[in-house]
Amino acid sequence: MGFLIQLRVLLWKDLLSELRGKELISMMAFFGLLVLVIFNFAFEPGSAEAAHLGSGILWVAFTFAGVLGLNRSFLLEKESEGLQGLLLSPVDRGVLYLGKLGGNFLFMLLVEALILPFFALFFNLDLWLLLPQLALVAILSTLGFTAVGTLFAAMSAQAKSRELLLPTLLLPIVVPVIVAAVKSTGQILEGRPLAEVAQWLKLLLAFDLLYLVVSFLIFEYVVEE
């Protein structure tokens, strides 16, 4: 039971810290929206082209915001020199990983929820009825993305060129998750039934599990030199 209390207080610390500063969320949302705005100029809103490319654009925005957030996530620990503080406490490294993952997952999901209305607005889409399906895809994809992302963020937080290192390491590995996210979001936006999307969702679930288990197991070796 002890680890649940530890997990809760790890999350509490990240959320409270972010609530006070709001730096992470606002920066992530800003860059995500920037991507949308740029693409909004590139395509005629409401055109068939835009609808077709919409899911890709949305996930570029999410991914961009996510990478930024991950880069910052251990920087918070670094600024407070907290990663060492955390590593010095009698907490299983796996629990530290899950605590950090929980924060990253929630932050990214929140930013996605902030970006989505602007996406609907810019691309002239009525998303109300599709919200449950989109939420399911977002949750599954974001979990896979942040599961690996948290591991790599910890790894690159130790390295010098961390801002570059993270995307170069992370993006190739999460390609399956992003492809599945784009495909399933596209099908949902086209109004296809969930049953048709199911194969992509199963793929997402499989990658989530794989990434979670592997990252959980190797986190310890990443943070201890």
Partner: peptide
């Protein structure tokens, strides 16, 4: 010389955080 503290949190919150991790 590094403090391992969280700048956005208060002393109470910082110590509560670490104290809870130690159970």
């Amino acid at each position: 010389h590094q403090t391992f503290l969280y700048n956005n949190l208060t002393p109470m919150e910082n110590l509560k955080f670490y104290g809870t991790l130690y159970g």
